[in-house]
């Protein structure tokens, strides 16, 4: 009886070892070799984006392909992006990765959160972005020493929030086994430590048209608004960065907000005084901020809402003022959520 058990056990161990080897060493290094995207687009356009991929496999295995795209939240990418692929291993399509699917090596995070934690917002300056993640419809099977080439063809409808936008789109490819890990083998061109994933950050991409305010994720701005999307019943922080360019206010250590609000019934309310009500707090390093509750700041009635505001930053005399792009035009902001 015992010898038979031993033989059985040995087989099980061998099978288990083979399985473990297959799981641990099933991987492919991957890289995005080229991204093709139009130079600009209009709000509402469906933009074709092509990612060309090279994949180099060091074992047998089978994985689904993951692709993530970093874009403004306002574009509602989960509703407005589709993707297909063509490759030397076959063609197919991508589907949104369920938010309940946990990423391998992701410490319990789903794919969008894992990408956010690993790659952040890829050098963009306004934190109102999200990673939209898709996975291939079927796993692709590969063999040791396979060299696979292929393309992912994304169709992204841009500007669902109706805002003209300048943004650095970023792309990540990976597989459903290895997450964002790498090994110590040298595999020419696949990252410093031969990575099982790859990130590609695009140049600043402009979307023009639309009825909203320009949202520039790419270039430092004289003023920023936080949260980026808010209503008049939010607490809204306006920050002025005097380091962006030389202005009439450079060197001033006492700055004020001069704002005009417009209500839903067409009333305009100007609050342009140099008092504690409008004084901006120095944050250090030439940056100043003021947080306002627009409903209270503009003193609207219960039946009114503030729909938008224009504003300047002034010195304590009110005579020197800085507007949008350091011009005589005011900064503008619309109170809306989309």
């Amino acid at each position: 009886m015992l010898p038979r058990l031993n033989i059985k056990g040995r087989k099980i161990w061998m099978l288990s070892a083979l399985l473990i080897v297959a799981i641990v060493f099933s991987f492919c290094h991957i890289k995005i070799t080229k991204v093709t995207i139009p130079a600009t687009a209009q709000v509402g356009d469906v933009v074709p984006i092509q990612l060309d991929l090279d994949v180099s496999c060091n074992s047998d295995g089978s994985d689904k392909l993951i692709v993530g795209v970093l874009m403004p939240k306002g574009w509602k990418g989960t509703q407005n992006m589709t993707a297909t692929y063509t490759s030397s291993k076959g063609n197919g399509s991508f589907a949104m990765t369920p938010l309940t699917t946990l990423a391998p090596h992701g410490d319990g995070k789903n794919w969008p959160d894992y990408m956010r934690a690993t790659f952040g917002i890829a050098g963009n300056l306004i934190d109102d972005m999200e990673w939209v993640v898709m996975q291939s419809d079927v796993p692709f099977t590969y063999a040791n020493n396979d060299k696979i080439t292929g393309s992912i063809n994304l169709n992204l409808k841009v500007g669902a929030d109706d805002n003209p936008t300048i943004v650095k789109l970023a792309y990540v490819v990976a597989n459903t086994t290895n997450g964002f890990t790498s090994d110590n083998f040298v595999d020419g061109g696949y990252g410093a430590t031969a990575e099982y994933y790859n990130e590609y950050i695009g140049d600043c991409f402009s979307v023009t048209g639309g009825g909203g305010d320009l949202v520039d994720f790419c270039n430092p701005q004289l003023t920023t608004v936080s949260p980026p999307k808010s209503l008049d019943n939010d607490l809204v922080t306006l920050t002025f960065d005097s380091n962006v360019i030389q202005t009439d206010l450079s060197g001033n250590d006492e700055l004020y907000l001069c704002a005009t609000g417009t209500t839903n019934d067409g009333q305009t309310i100007a609050i342009c005084e140099q008092t504690t009500r409008t004084q901006m707090k120095p944050l250090g390093g030439g940056r100043f901020a003021i947080t306002i509750w627009p409903r209270s700041f503009f003193g609207v009635s219960d039946s009114q809402t503030v729909t938008n505001m224009t504003y300047f930053i002034t010195d304590k005399t009110g005579t020197k003022q800085v507007g949008y792009g350091n011009t005589a035009a005011p900064f503008t902001y619309k109170f809306k959520c989309g």
Partner: peptide, 9 residues
């Protein structure tokens, strides 16, 4: 959430 749904206080 007094304003936009994304803004939680």
């Amino acid at each position: 959430i007094p304003g936009c749904e994304l803004n939680s206080y």
